[in-house]
Structures are given as structure tokens and as C-alpha cells.
Design a protein around this nucleic acid. Structure first.
Lengths: 127, 127
DNA sequence: GTTATTGCAAACAATTTGCACCCAC
DNA sequence: GTGGGTGCAAATTGTTTGCAATAAC
């Protein structure tokens, strides 16, 4: 659990290859499809480890955990109704992170700026 | 589902009273404790409605949805290991929100700035 | 009277856990 | 050999759904 093991490497590889956030089940299916033998439990256990290492991040959509590489875009506009997330072309948190958190001995891995509301289609759907 | 009904009012009241984020089950238990009769399903259904209205927000901790009023602090440092969230004394997103999103016809309800990493106790616990 | 909302219990699905096995070192 | 990592299947638990009864307007 200390050094990145074989399963964790597979998980990271899949996330890099597909280039999009996946659920645990999708990751599991994908690794199997690539010929590797792996159990669901192993996927979950290693996803947890990877999360704590700060390599992947988790968000929840429709009551299902979705995993993605931390290296991907961190700023989104998320629709409360359909869950669609569109990246925002801004990145501004670094400037405040450091000073505020150093004093609290908090070790920053990454950050997220997310805006919630209704996307245009959903606005029309529920007036 | 259009106008705030009785159940939704109860949910909001509980969230205001306890002044802290609660799980659906906790909200359900609390409303019952106050003498109101309500079913779990009703709680879930109305939480969903309140979410879409932008009145409450959801986050997931340990595979459980946690609900809180949107009016509460939106900026946090979250520990990836223990899940502890400490509010940040900053608020900076407004300035970028508006211009970026107006062009996309996205109706903003609220925003969140979250920083992830390890809190000081957890750093010592996992070197 | 018509429509929306509710409670109940059953159904569901994602995630977790216990345990025996196996591999690496 | 020993300890961590694994697969399997069972168990758990939060959440959702169908439906008849009820409340709202």
C-alpha cells in the first residue's frame, strides 16, 4: 500500500487511456477487458489508496462515485439537474491557497473550483 | 414540487436548527424526533427537489450523501484521509463567475472552492 | 374532483468485509 | 516463511421505486 502496486498502476493506466472520469465498476470492467484478472474489491481498495495519495479525485453523480486523475481540469460549472459538467477556463486558487493553509499545517494536494446552477437546456425544461 | 411544501419546510428547518451538514437518515430521524411523521422516501424525494432549486447542496463522505444549506460557508480545506473539512476564510469566485458563465447561458446558484490534501494529524499518521 | 404528495415495504445497486489463498521478498 | 495484496462471494447499507392511501387545492 506504500509503493504503487500492480493494481494501482492498472487503474491509473485506464484513467489515462480513457481520458475521462469513470465509475469503479467501469474501471473494473475496463481492466478486465484488457485481459488482466482483477476483482471488484481490489479496485475499490486501491481507489481508496490512490485517493489518499492525492493522485485521483472522487465526485458523486447520481449516487455513484466517479473517479478521475487529479491532473485533469479542476474548475467546472455543474448543472444541478442533469449533472452535466462543463470546464471553466479559469484557474485562480493558487494565489490564496498557500498563505491561508500554511499557517494551518495543511498539506495541499489539489483544489477545485466549482460553480453550481442550471445549464441552458435544463432552464427551459423547468421554468 | 413547485412551491415549497410541508416536508421541504421541515427539512430546511432541521438543517437550520442543527447548523451542520446532515445525512438523509439523520434528517429523517431528526424530523421524527420532533414529532412529525415522515417516511425516508419522502425525505429523499424532497432533498432532490431542494437540490435542484439550489437551496441545499450535497457532498459525499464515506459513501454517504451529506446535505447542507447553500447559505453556509462554501470554501473548505478537506482532508483526503479523515474527511474533516475546515472552512477557509476566503471568498473570491464571484469576480470570475459572472463573465465566464453569462456567455454560456448558465444560471449560477452558488459556487464552491475546495482544497484537498492532508490535515496535520493525518500527515503524522501516514508518513 | 383532480392532482400532487406521502408512507410503506420491497427492490436495487454500489460498496465493504471476511477469509482463504497466493505472490513477492 | 512471513506479510501484504488479492479474488471471491456474502453481507451491508444508502437510496430508489411501485403502488395504494392521503392530503392539498
Amino acid at each position: 500500500m506504500k509503493t504503487p502496486n500492480h493494481s494501482q498502476a492498472n487503474i491509473l493506466k485506464v484513467l489515462e487511456q480513457t481520458k475521462k472520469p469513470l465509475s469503479a465498476q467501469e474501471i473494473w470492467a475496463e481492466i478486465q477487458k484488457q485481459g488482466q484478472k482483477i476483482g471488484v474489491a481490489t479496485v475499490y481498495r486501491n481507489l481508496e489508496s490512490l485517493k489518499i495519495k492525492g493522485l485521483i479525485q472522487i465526485r458523486t453523480v447520481h449516487n455513484q462515485a466517479i473517479y478521475s486523475l487529479v491532473s485533469e481540469k479542476q474548475n467546472f460549472a455543474t448543472c444541478l439537474q442533469c449533472g452535466e459538467r462543463t470546464p471553466l477556463g479559469i484557474s485562480l486558487a493558487q494565489s490564496v491557497e498557500a498563505p491561508t493553509l500554511q499557517s494551518q499545517a495543511f498539506e495541499v494536494y489539489y483544489h477545485t473550483l466549482e460553480v453550481f446552477g442550471l445549464c441552458s437546456p435544463c432552464q427551459e425544461r423547468s421554468p
